[in-house]
Design a protein around this nucleic acid. Structure first.
Lengths: 201, 201, 201, 201
DNA sequence: GGCTAATCGAGACGGTACGTCTCGTCTTGTT
DNA sequence: AACAAGACGAGACGTACCGTCTCGATTAGCC
């Protein structure tokens, strides 16, 4: 839990406009849907948001950072990992939730664009991996930890490989094959990952 | 069956310069290593290649297309899928070969950049998926077909899902975690995919 | 009568940089002297002025407009038409002043280039005729009006023809024969135009 | 009189195509009327003429040279200077003929464009002055010589100044004021130049 | 009838400037 | 201070022509 100092740091001058912040996030989200990531520009977002470009540069290092925040603000990206009683059930629920998110055209497009930008812009890559990808891995890791505690986890593959397989298949479908994230894939993943190749961890 | 006359191309005018083509591909490959994809420019490639910009625009729709061709020209991207006697051995060999390619820093960077560009530029995306990604899937599909013929293939996961898992894990490590494509991952993938969850296909 | 309020421009945002404006005019003037009008480029002027090309395009429609303003800023193009007591003396002074201007190699070259550009670029032609040629005609017209008021003006040629003859001879020497604008020509023009062919207007 | 060696140099190989030459001149003439001199290009002329660019570059140094030859081929630029019995009559006839030519919109536009090009391109300027402007001056000089022989020529202005005044007024109207070359101007010029300011030469 | 040579249409080549676009920064007056 | 506005230096974009350079196909003398 974050314990923010109740006395605000006694800042001087005008405070950051929450109105501008929201307008910028909304504008970014709208525009990426209208013109696509390739044609997104800072100038376009500022114009749509009715703000100056400087206001964007002052608070975000790049357009991708804006979009990442806009995505977080719009979509509830946080998948549940409640206890469903078994590794298979937990895994199925996690994958089902994740796939559901990726089935939205706009959200999927933005995710792909951000992953793309992470390859091209190293600074954003750091942030995207730490703030977004890492969080998703951690969420699934909780499921694996619970399974291990239960003695429910197959000996193979190793937990990090499970993460690579689940998220790998997800992202590969999004970016490479553009096939829908359907239940068949989800079921096959669960079956494959829960059918022990020998013992448990 | 189309019986195209090896038709007298009846070309008039000066022919395309093979020398320029090679110089451009080489320049693109060198520059992406020196300055990175983010700072690659058509002007830079033309200057390095000693050619006019128009010569690039005349033959390639975008910088990414140049890079894709340069990659194909430089790296032998075609992984073998010879018969090693069993599904497990075939799969292990295919994955091993694929990982070996992706361990080269430069090739890996270019692959990530091209996959990124495929997300941003729809036109290039088409080409990249059809000319590159599709070929790799087809190569692995041969392995699966051989295993099915042998009665060696587990009932689950379905073949397309096998492709998604293998390539998904590969690309996810390249782009998301940037963990090395090590033998542990390869071994775990083979184990997971060859340990039948029930019968064979 | 237009009574324009010196209205509070209420300008927002950064103002036009007078420093850039002067640097651009100076660069244009220098470069036309160094490389000639044929090899003058917007890029060259911007580089010499240390400004971006956009700053030129933002304020001038074409290179010729820049040069016209540069000329006006550098050379005092405005010939006096003070009263010397007689039509002949006024005319001689005006022609003498005009010729003196045209004797400068650089100014003459720029004038020829601008007149040339006025033939090729209709938009610039409008401006050049209205802002430059028209002013010079008006200045000489003042001399003719004063002569007419004095009863000093020959009946022929008609005033507009006087303008055509004086400026015609001047420009024709500059552009066609490239003969110097010498006193002999000035004297002959005055003699011819002041020797009445019958009465006064 | 040019005494060309009657025996042709015994050339070998294919001869210059008269067909192409005519097609190029015609294309240049048509295009300058359709798109204007500013948008005239060698490529456009070649395309219209159905010839290769090299065929133009082989025979003319620049587009302006083509246009000059096209003009000579289309318009009969040579004004008569037959003997009409008096200086005034000869001069009036010469000016009338010259003005008639300049009244054609297309011819006038081409003349202005060529004079413009002569200011910008020194090499063409040489040719234009020697081949075109000089010829016109020579033609009027014949009229002056005849008048001098007759004892018909006013003492002032000096003959070269007469040329400057006549052609100056003509070109100035074409290029600067764009006023029509009307009879009023012609009459005023004749009156002014034939009303002796004292004696004859 | 071959041979050699010059020209032809076609069109790719290395260059270069164009005018546009967007970047990220800087400078205004306002809030 | 932060804000909206908007000009600034910078520099890549993709296009348009430049003038040159192959190409194969003609078309002429000459042997």
């Amino acid at each position: 839990m974050v314990m923010e100092q109740p006395p605000p740091p006694a800042r001087r001058g005008r405070r950051r406009s929450e109105e501008s912040r929201m307008a910028i996030l909304a504008a970014a989200f709208e525009l990426v849907g209208e013109v696509g990531y390739a044609d997104l520009t800072i100038e376009g977002i500022a114009a749509r948001a009715g703000c100056g470009k400087q206001t964007i540069y002052r608070w975000w290092p790049s357009m991708a950072h804006v979009l990442l925040e806009a995505l977080a603000a719009k979509a509830d990206l946080y998948v549940t990992n409640a206890d469903h009683g078994s590794y298979a059930a937990d895994l199925r629920a996690f994958i089902g939730d994740s796939f559901r998110l990726g089935r939205g055209r706009l959200v999927a497009d933005i995710l792909c664009a951000l992953m793309a930008q992470a390859q091209i812009d190293a600074e954003f890559g750091e942030v995207f991996r730490a703030d977004f990808l890492r969080r998703r891995r951690d969420a699934l890791q909780v499921v694996l930890d619970r399974a291990a505690a239960r003695g429910d986890l197959p000996a193979s593959p190793a937990p990090p490989v499970v993460l690579d397989i689940v998220f790998g298949a997800l992202w590969y479908r999004l970016m490479a094959t553009r096939q829908p994230l359907d239940d068949a894939l989800a079921d096959d993943l669960v079956t494959t990952l829960t059918t022990a190749s020998g013992g448990t961890r």
